[in-house]
């Protein structure tokens, strides 16, 4: 538009609104060079840097998230292990208690059996001794009685066979009578 205007005739000053064609051309060339450089070099480089930075920040965040998740998992695992250990300890304690009780019972049983055995042995010995005593008494009472009877009767009962028969009969009689009177 301004190229149509004529330079003011009045003064010597040129009209500042009239562009020189050289200005436009130089301006276009200068700006063209700058634009080419910016479009080909500056913007791609900076965009790349921005993208990398964003990625780094977001990647850092993701990494932190992963680490947090790992920490949470480790904590959970640790707690689970702790609970397991606690349970195991309880189980062991329980087992020990049970075992102890079992041992105690066994010991008690053994002691009972031992005592039973001892009692039984003692009884058996007593029985045997009593049997022996009875047997010896059996013989001695017979002899004493026969001696006594011999003395009382004055009759020699030297005939062993008969004597034996008499004693047996006597003893049998004694046994058949109530025990109070036997001895």
């Amino acid at each position: 538009m301004d190229t149509l205007l004529v330079v003011r005739a009045a003064g010597e000053d040129p009209n500042p609104l009239v562009p020189h064609v050289a200005e436009i051309i130089v301006g276009l060339i200068a700006f063209g060079i700058l634009y080419y450089f910016v479009a080909k070099f500056v913007v791609p480089r900076f965009e790349k840097a921005f993208a990398e930075r964003t990625e780094a920040i977001e990647g850092g965040l993701a990494k932190a998230e992963v680490a947090q998740a790992q920490a949470a998992a480790a904590l959970e695992q640790y707690q689970a292990q702790l609970a397991d250990a606690r349970g195991e300890a309880g189980q062991i304690r329980e087992e020990a208690r049970a075992q102890g009780a079992a041992i105690l019972a066994e010991m008690r049983q053994q002691a009972q059996a031992e005592s039973d055995r001892l009692v039984a042995g003692a009884q058996a010995q007593i029985e045997a001794e009593r049997a022996a005593a009875v047997a010896s008494l059996h013989a001695e009472v017979g002899t004493l009685a026969s001696e006594l009877a011999e003395k009382i009767v004055g009759e020699s009962l030297s005939d062993d066979e008969r004597q034996q028969r008499v004693i047996d009969r006597f003893i049998a009689d004694l046994e058949n009578q109530p025990s109070g009177r036997a001895t």
Partner: peptide, 11 residues
């Protein structure tokens, strides 16, 4: 110098 703004404006 108005030529330079005109050049930019043209673009």
């Amino acid at each position: 110098l108005i030529g330079f703004p005109i050049a930019l404006t043209l673009i």
